[in-house]
Amino acid sequence: MIRGEQLSKVFGEVQAVRPLDIHIPPRAVTAIMGGSGSGKTTLLRLLAGLERPTTGHVWFAGEDLTAISERRLFALREQMGMVFQYSALLNSLNVYDNVAFPLHEHTDLPERVIRRMVAMKLEQVGLRGFEHLMPSELSGGMAKRVAFARAMAMDPAVVFFDEPTSGLDPISAGVITELIRDTADTVQMTAVVVTHDVAAGLAIADHVILMWQGEVIARGTPAEIRASDDARVRQFIEGRPDGPIPFSRSTTPYAQSLLEEA
């Protein structure tokens, strides 16, 4: 479905993503996991065409997102949905208008059809009856669910999730993970989930890509990842503070810098 070829991204002097090849299989949930600063969110934005890669290409349904016109990119986006880390609901619109926004923008459907479709999407996330609330009146978990309904409004082929469970209480996080898994199964969508939540990631994914410092250090099914004997993978899924991924991020020896100061 989506393929990244020698993708890399440099911000100033920081190499956020080192050149890597990546393949997102269709009709499956792919989890990109890694610690903060591992480059996973940048990778997601590259795949969604929100960020232009420093090198490499992104192939989406046979087209190179890095080479096509803005107009064509916008046309392809009608097949994409995205749930952002902080939901990114348009705060001047209420819940109904947020979910209906893609429909209002890209279809000429009569309002009563749109109303029914919005009701369906909101029912799916368990928020029917909350249409009139403004985003500022929603809790984090509810906003995430509305964002999910909005991303699904156009029944996209691919949905990107940026940290869907971060900042949510365990119940809300569970609700969102369930939603992603159920929806992927029922409507056969392709989902790309970026998360640092090991349990959630392994629970919902068909494929897992593990990143560290802009590089892919492991890929495979959740079972393969769990059974991996790579020390870095073991450290990440077991959540140990020190190991091959060092606790200290300093690049110079401590003793040396103390001596230099003196």
């Binding site: 934005r45 929100l50 949905g81 995205m82 990114a88 348009l90 705060n91 893609p102 923008e105």
Partner: peptide, 18 residues
Amino acid sequence: GIMRVTEQLDALRMMAVN
């Protein structure tokens, strides 16, 4: 600026709105 911080501008682009 707030729309930028809260990724609303990115959300618009993802919804194919410039």
